[in-house]
C-alpha cells in the first residue's frame, strides 16, 4: 500500500521536531530515511506507525492513520523498532511472532486457522523455524531481528516500518536481513544509519536534517558530496561499482571545523545551509537536480 506523508509538523514539549515533511513511497517501494542523529528520523517513523500525533499534516497509509483505530492502523502498518523485543522473558520465539496477530483480534477473539497460517508463514519466510521454541533472550542479534521481522510479517502488513534494524549485527547477518526485507515485497520505510546499507536496500532515499527533508530521490542522485558534507559532516563521494553495488567512499581526512572542503562548496541549494531556520521547507528546497524533494520520490 502507498504511504504518503503530507506537510507533517511534529512538536514535542513545544520544541518543533519535524517541519513541513513530505514523502511518498509507492506500493512495493523501499524508501530509506537517512540523516544524522537527532535529525528526526525516529520521530517521523513514530508518526507513521501511529504512536505520535502530528501537530499538523497527514500520514496516509491508504487512509489518514489517525482516522483509523489503533488496531486498524496496525493491521496495515507493522514496525520493527529499537526496543529490541522488550522484556519478553518467558515467551518463546513462536509466541513472540504470534504477537503480530494482536491487531487482528478484539478482546474476545481467539486464535484461528488464519492466525496459525500467518504465524507459520512468517516463521518459514524469516528462517526462524530452527529456534522457534527457544527463549528470545538466548538468541544471537541476527536471530532476534529475524524473529522481530517475522512478528511484523505475521501482522500481514501493507507497510513495514524499520528503525535501525541492522544495528549490532555482524556483516553477514546484516546482508541476510536486508535480503529478507527485500524479498517480502512489502512497501517499506526504513531508517538506516549506515549509508552503504541504505544504498544496498533502498530504491529511494530521503535525507532528513534538523527536522526537514533536505533532498530525496534515487540513491546516486541524493548522496552527493555536497549532501554528505553539509548534512553528514563527512568528506565522501558515492560511486557505482561495476557489479552494480553503490558505495560511499569516505575521504581520509576529516572535514575542517567550519564544515568546508575545497570542492563542491555550493552544490546543494541554498536551503541546506540554513536548514535550521524555520522557513527551510522541503517543498522549497531544491536538490542537486533542482527538483523538489517531494517530486523526487514518486
Amino acid at each position: 500500500m502507498k504511504l504518503t506523508v503530507d506537510r507533517l509538523h511534529i512538536t514535542l514539549d513545544r520544541t518543533p521536531i519535524l517541519r513541513e515533511v513530505n514523502l511518498e513511497a509507492r506500493k512495493g517501494d523501499i524508501v530509506g530515511l537517512v540523516g544524522p542523529n537527532g535529525s528526526g528520523k525516529s520521530t517521523l517513523l513514530r508518526a507513521v506507525y501511529r504512536s505520535l500525533r502530528p501537530a499538523d499534516g497527514v500520514v496516509r497509509v491508504g487512509d489518514d492513520v489517525w482516522a483509523l483505530s489503533a488496531r486498524a492502523a496496525a493491521r496495515r502498518t507493522a514496525a520493527v523498532l529499537q526496543d529490541g523485543g522488550g522484556n519478553t522473558t518467558g515467551l518463546t520465539v513462536t509466541e513472540i511472532v504470534a504477537l503480530g496477530r494482536a491487531p487482528h483480534h478484539g478482546l474476545l477473539g481467539r486464535d484461528g486457522a488464519a492466525d496459525h497460517r500467518a504465524v507459520q508463514e512468517a516463521i518459514d519466510r524469516c528462517g526462524v523455524l530452527p529456534f522457534a521454541d527457544r527463549d528470545f533472550a538466548s538468541l544471537s542479534g541476527g536471530e532476534r531481528q529475524r524473529v522481530l521481522l517475522a512478528r511484523a510479517l505475521a501482522q500481514r502488513p501493507q507497510l513495514l516500518v524499520l528503525d535501525e534494524v541492522t544495528n549490532h549485527l555482524d556483516i553477514r547477518a546484516r546482508f541476510e536481513l536486508l535480503d529478507l526485507i527485500r524479498a517480502t515485497g512489502v512497501t517499506t520505510l526504513a531508517v538506516l544509519h549506515d549509508l552503504d546499507l541504505a544504498a544496498r536496500l533502498c530504491d529511494h532515499l530521503v535525507v532528513l536534517h534538523k527536522g526537514a527533508v533536505i533532498t530525496a530521490g534515487l540513491v546516486l542522485k541524493v548522496l552527493t558530496p555536497a549532501v554528505l558534507r553539509d548534512v553528514f559532516g563527512v568528506r565522501a563521494t558515492t560511486e557505482r561499482h561495476p557489479d552494480g553495488v553503490i558505495r560511499v567512499v569516505y575521504g581520509a581526512q576529516p572535514l575542517a571545523d567550519d564544515g568546508t572542503t575545497d570542492a563542491d562548496s555550493t552544490a546543494v541549494g541554498d536551503g541546506t545551509a540554513d536548514a535550521d531556520s524555520t522557513t527551510a521547507g522541503a517543498d522549497t528546497t531544491p536538490d542537486g537536480d533542482g527538483r523538489s524533494a517531494e517530486g523526487a520520490v514518486r
Binding site: 501511529r50 483505530s69 489503533a70 496496525a74 523498532l81 522488550g86 519478553t88 513472540i96 504477537l99 494482536a102
Partner: peptide, 23 residues
C-alpha cells in the same frame, strides 16, 4: 484475562505494543 493478548504485546515494549495496535 480478556486483555491477555494486549498484555502480551505490552511485553514487547511500549512503542512496539503501539505498533501492534495496542492503546
Amino acid at each position: 484475562s480478556l486483555f491477555g493478548r494486549r498484555l502480551n504485546a505490552l511485553l514487547a515494549g511500549d512503542e512496539s505494543a503501539t505498533a501492534l495496535g495496542v492503546d
